[in-house]
Amino acid sequence: MPELDDRALGTVLKTLRQPPMPGMAEIQTALLDQSLTEPRGDWDRKWHRISVLAQYAMDSHLPEAWLARQPHDANIIALHGWTECLRALRRGSMPTAQDVLDACHRAADDRPADPTHWVVILGVLRCLGAPQREVFWAWNEVLIRDRWHRQAHLDMLSYLSPAECGSHMQMMDFVDSVQASMPPTAPTLGLELTAATRQYINTLDTGGPSALLARDQWHHRADASILERALNWQLDPRCLHHAAALADLNALAFALAAARRPNDAKAVFATLGGIVTPWPWNALGDPLTAYERESKRALR
Rank of each mutant, 00 (worst) to 15 (best):
M58N: 09
M58G: 05
S60A: 10
P63S: 08
E64H: 12
A65W: 01
L67E: 05
A68D: 13
P71F: 02
H72N: 15
H72C: 10
H72E: 15
D73L: 06
A74Q: 06
N75R: 07
I77Q: 02
I77D: 05
L79D: 01
H80P: 04
G81D: 04
E84T: 07
C85V: 13
A88L: 00
A88T: 04
G92Q: 05
M94L: 12
P95Y: 04
A97V: 07
Q98P: 05
D99E: 14
V100T: 06
A103Y: 04
R106M: 07
A107I: 02
D110S: 13
D114W: 03
P115C: 06
P115A: 07
T116N: 08
W118P: 00
V119I: 05
V120M: 04
I121G: 00
I121L: 03
I121F: 01
V124G: 00
V124Y: 01
C127W: 04
G129L: 09
A130N: 09
P131Q: 11
R133Q: 15
E134L: 12
V135M: 01
F136A: 11
A138T: 03
W139Q: 08
E141I: 06
E141G: 10
E141Q: 15
R145E: 12
H149V: 04
Q151D: 11
A152C: 12
H153R: 13
D155M: 11
L157Y: 01
S158D: 15
Y159W: 11
L160I: 03
L160D: 01
M171C: 14
V175R: 05
S181G: 13
T185A: 09
A186V: 02
L189N: 13
L193S: 02
T194I: 06
